[in-house]
């Protein structure tokens, strides 16, 4: 077997273009589970562990997060915690320090795991992913990146290189609802971020992907309980819910209305 260790993004995309079957290994927390269970097998692997340019993070102006920046770093970084508290909270909510020490910004988006915490917050924050391939670089809003159950709009040979989160102009709240152990993944994940006079509410972990309804959000009257309730009910009614150990579809539908309303009241405080 071959474990490729490219050292630059150019190197990675070239290697990948020549070997489209070779999995890209970032932190390896999700891939490791699949590999352990025999669900992913390959003869060649492309590891990002030596691509130092992907570990860069800048926070002057917008927040630029390299694809290999770990959850733990985002959670603990003083500037992120101060200026992007919603982002820090969503990354801190993921699993345990062990996983957050390894799991990366690029990985969480490329996996498009419906029950992960960060995607809803990144969509609510208007984050944009930068994606590279041998054909060049393009920018895709995270909202358009995750398109379904473990599924993204990326081409097979593309690599997320960084994610840019605009500097917020209003409050951000992340609400994770757990129905079992406090260590569990979310039964619903609601992010609300205020941008000027408007709000972006995104609901994750209840369906195939994060859901944002701009037309519903546009009806928001900050601090108005009726408005928050109406938006919650509208969100609740528009989503097609999953049914699993963390909650039935009917329960999820009910709590999404409640959680959206609570998130909206919290960001208006």
């Amino acid at each position: 077997m071959t474990w490729h260790l490219p050292t630059s993004v150019d190197d990675v995309v070239r290697t990948r273009a020549e070997r489209p079957e070779a999995p890209i290994v970032a932190g390896g927390t999700f891939l490791g589970i699949l590999v352990r269970q025999g669900l992913v097998e390959a003869d060649e692997w492309i590891s990002l562990q030596r691509v130092t340019e992907l570990t860069r993070m800048h926070s002057a102006g917008d927040l630029s997060v390299g694809a290999m920046v770990t959850h733990r770093r985002l959670e603990l970084d003083d500037t992120v915690r101060t200026i992007w508290p919603g982002v820090a909270a969503a990354f801190k909510a993921v699993a345990s320090p062990r996983v957050r020490n390894r799991a990366t910004m690029g990985g969480v988006l490329a996996d498009a795991d419906y029950a992960s915490d960060p995607p809803s917050m990144l969509v609510a924050s208007n984050a944009v992913a930068e994606i590279a391939s041998v054909r060049g670089t393009r920018r895709v809003p995270v909202e358009d990146l995750i398109i379904g159950h473990y599924s993204t709009s990326m081409e097979e040979d593309e690599l997320i290189t960084r994610v840019v989160v605009p500097r917020p102009t209003g409050a951000a709240v992340y609400r994770k609802l757990r129905t079992r152990s406090q260590e569990d993944r979310p039964a619903s994940s609601v992010a609300a971020v205020v941008h000027g006079e408007t709000v972006r509410v995104v609901v994750g972990a209840v369906s195939d992907r994060p859901y944002h309804f701009a037309d519903v959000c546009s009806q928001w009257r900050p601090g108005d309980l009726d408005s928050a309730r109406e938006i919650g009910e509208e969100y609740a009614s528009r989503i097609d819910y999953i049914d699993d150990n963390r909650g039935s579809a009917a329960y999820r539908r009910h709590v999404v209305g409640v959680e959206v309303r609570r998130a909206l009241m919290a960001v208006a405080r």
């Binding site: 079992r180 152990s181 406090q182 260590e183 569990d184 699993d244 150990n245």
Partner: peptide, 9 residues
């Protein structure tokens, strides 16, 4: 998919 109690509980 089957939770047991953690230190958080």
């Amino acid at each position: 998919d089957y939770n047991i109690a953690s230190a958080l509980d």
